[in-house]
Every structure is written in C-alpha cells, then in structure tokens.
Simulated assay, not measured.
Amino acid sequence: MLPERIETDRLELTALTPENVDVLAYYDICSGNAGDDIDAVTEHLPWEPHDTPKETKEFLDRLADQRAAGENAEFLVRPKGGDEGPDDDRIAGTVGLAPHWDRRTGELGIWLREPFWGRGYYDEAFAELARVAFERLDLDAVEIVHRHGNANSRRATEKFVERFGGRHEGRLRNYWTGPGGPADAHRYTVARDEYGANAEADR
C-alpha cells in the first residue's frame, strides 16, 4: 500500500528501514557525528539527537513496523546526481506521510540537514507525498503541523500551501509534544479538490 521508492525531478525517496540504510551511518547523522549542527536541526523537531547506535536501530525497527501496519511511511531523501554539487550521494534528511485513516487525512513531516536547507527539497518532496496521499491512498486532505516559532518551517509550509490552494487552520495551544514539553503549534491543510485544481495548473 505504501510505496517503497519514489522519484521526483531532483530527489530519490527510499523507505527508511534497516534494509535501506546502514544503522551506523544513520546514527552518525542523527547524533551529529557526521559533522552537522544537530542541535540546530532538531531544535523544533519532536525528537532529540540519538545517544547510541542501539537507539538508532530501535528507531528504524519501529519505523519498519509502522510501515508494515500502514501507519506511517518515512523516506530517506537523497538528491539525484546533477547540479547540486559534491553532496549528491548523501542523505539529505527524511520525509514522511502518516495516514490518519479515521480522519482520512495524511500528515506530512520533514527534516533536512543544514547543508540541504534552501534548495526547495521541502516543497518537492511534499508535493510528491501529497500526490501519493490523494491518488494512491484515496485520502481527503493532507495536513502539516509545525512548532510555533519555527520560522524556517513556517516559510516553507506557507509557500507549499499557497502553491496548492490550501489554508492555515490556526494556532493550536499546547498541541506540539516533544522535548522541552508541550508548545503551541500551527496546522495547515490542503484538501483533495484544492490539490487537484492546482496540481493540474502547476503542470
């Protein structure tokens, strides 16, 4: 039901499972050992840097179980070779689609390593997962939720939502859960008909 691999113009999205990524390599990314400022990356995310490879292995196993159950599909984001520079073969981050079947809504989420910020990968990956949500999973809407104060996510989300005719639903008090305790969050949605009308015009 949930795809294992997706290609966009510039990206390869591959299921984030133990079969598709080396645990130690992914641990290096999620712990900051790969040289990233991991605290800057995770500042507004619902998870903290990984402390041990065991934590990373358990995380990947949990994602594999969620995928098998149809609850969540997380993908590695890798730029294709071409004009993006020397980092083409590296993992840029991950993007996910979590179906909420009872609400017929898919929640989109993404995080990218700092060297890959500002390249438009957010919009490109989300557009493709929205297509999967509507055309493959037959959902009625996609939603994006980001922590209040996350300026980078706000700008990228507003651009994506405007592109597909969606809306900012509002600021939700104490909706965000993660490190540091509850915080306010912003919720955005794009409905199936909004996506369909604007995706066609976008082609």
Rank of each mutant, 00 (worst) to 15 (best):
I6R: 07
D22A: 12
D37N: 13
T14D: 02
L76D: 05
D39A: 11
L60E: 05
R90D: 15
W47Y: 07
L63I: 12
D87F: 10
I91H: 08
A68F: 00
P53E: 03
A68D: 04
L60R: 07
P3W: 09
G93Q: 00
E84N: 14
D28H: 10
T56I: 07
R67Y: 13
L16I: 15
G93A: 00
G93I: 03
D37I: 06
Y26T: 00
H100Q: 15
W117Q: 05
A40W: 10
H100G: 11
D9S: 14
R113K: 02
V95S: 04
L112I: 03
G106W: 11
E12N: 11
V21K: 06
P86M: 03
R67S: 06
A98C: 08
G81S: 12
L24V: 09
L2G: 02
L16H: 14
Y26P: 00
G81T: 14
P18R: 10
G109V: 03
D88G: 07
N20Y: 13
D89Y: 15
E114M: 05
D28Q: 13
R104G: 09
E4G: 13
H100R: 14
V21Q: 05
F116R: 04
D88W: 15
G70S: 07
P86Q: 01
V77M: 01
S31M: 04
P3D: 03
L76R: 05
A69E: 13
P79W: 02
D102E: 14
R10C: 01
G81L: 10
L16C: 13
D65S: 10
I38K: 00
I91Q: 09
Y27C: 07
P53S: 06
R113P: 00
D36T: 08
H100F: 12
D65M: 10
G93F: 00
F116P: 03
F59G: 02
G109I: 00
E114Y: 09
S31H: 07
L16R: 12
E114W: 09
H50G: 07
V41E: 01
R62T: 13
R10T: 02
P46A: 11
H50Y: 08
R5D: 06
T17E: 10
I91G: 05
V23K: 08
E48H: 08
T8I: 04
